[in-house]
Design a protein around this nucleic acid. Structure first.
Lengths: 185, 185
DNA sequence: GAGCCGTATGCAACTAGTTGCATAAAGCCC
DNA sequence: GGGCTTTATGCAACTAGTTGCATACGGCTC
């Protein structure tokens, strides 16, 4: 159960409404724990009901109007508890690898195009991450306050770089008549 | 919907019963698409009902006795269709990165131990993969028939190596009083 | 002031994966 | 042959994530 804890973290960083949270997720926490606004609203409701967060405007129910939340001490305690406790590393679930295995049996038609598409997407994401690193974590204040956030970003960069490299290698190993000539290496 | 296609691939490689499939998953396809026997039985039922596979022993229902399946032409066609069609790369969902972000807000108590635990697990998995590579893909017949399967294994190796490296780096960046001295680098 | 668009909240139904447990046959052991 | 273990199949309930859509306020325009 990670989503409630992701939300508690985001709310501790800055009290927000549901839609604000959704937007902040899209450009930070969501990189490694994506969530739609529907999920977030549902979870905010649960967290409020369980006393982990509360609305800043305790008026009657006003649909369509902004409702901001902040974390209560109970919520912070719960997050601290969860941070320290362990679980197994998440199992890899990657349909693309499944497609390679399937292609080994039924043929590689269309596979190269799919690999190239993924390669382009991973390169684009890598470029985004590197740009974020350049602006948010400049070399002059490495090892500063936010080294944990930087470590998280480095994980994203490393993963995207890994996939880009592996895809390029794998494409090179496909018979050449199965790939287009549009790649640059 | 990847599980049915994973099962079709496995059955094309070798017709099997539900439990045999479960065991084969545990040491090959399951590395990147894990499935329990409950999931597999349920999916075998659906695949049989939809005419993609059939039981080799079309007797009446005998519970507790082995029931082997093979793929029908319809199943092979469906798998070929699926192999070529594309989807977006799967979003990363990694609770460990969430814990780092949370730790940045509520403190790093217990975090180092958690990172060390993951480091050990990833190193062990990496060693397993390298052993499989050594026995199943010896250097003398690289680029052979099974280059696709090898590419899949290389992905697993690369991912585990990445995580091991990133975890070691991240641990080194934690203040030293927050880690035990049991690591070896 | 009617209609439209953007912001915002939220419900309902569905799909996929997980967990716990029930059932049955077959072999072994005493 | 009565009970235990292993092999095997399978149901049911639950949890988490996804998809589609409904509702409501506020400002703008015509």
């Amino acid at each position: 159960m990670s989503l409630p804890h992701a939300i508690l973290t985001a709310l501790l960083e800055k009290p927000s409404s549901g839609l604000e949270l959704t937007r902040r997720f899209d450009k930070s926490i969501g990189f490694f724990w994506p969530a739609t606004h529907q999920q977030i609203y549902r979870e905010l409701g649960r967290l409020e009901a369980s006393g982990h967060i509360r609305a800043l405007q305790p008026d009657g129910p006003v649909r369509g109007q902004k409702k901001e939340y902040e974390v209560l001490p109970e919520g912070r305690a719960e997050l601290a508890r969860w941070t320290a406790d362990g679980d197994a590393p998440r199992a890899v679930r990657e349909p693309l690898l499944l497609r390679l295995r399937a292609a080994a049996v039924v043929g590689t038609d269309g596979l190269a195009a799919e690999l190239e598409r993924h390669l382009a997407l991973h390169r684009a994401q890598l470029a985004d991450y590197l740009e974020i690193e350049r602006t948010d974590f400049p070399a002059e204040n490495a090892d500063g306050e936010n080294r944990l956030q930087h470590a998280v970003l480095r994980a994203g960069i490393g993963l995207e770089a890994f996939w880009a490299e592996w895809l390029a290698e794998t494409l090179d190993a496909l018979p050449s008549d199965e790939r287009s000539s549009s790649r640059s290496g």
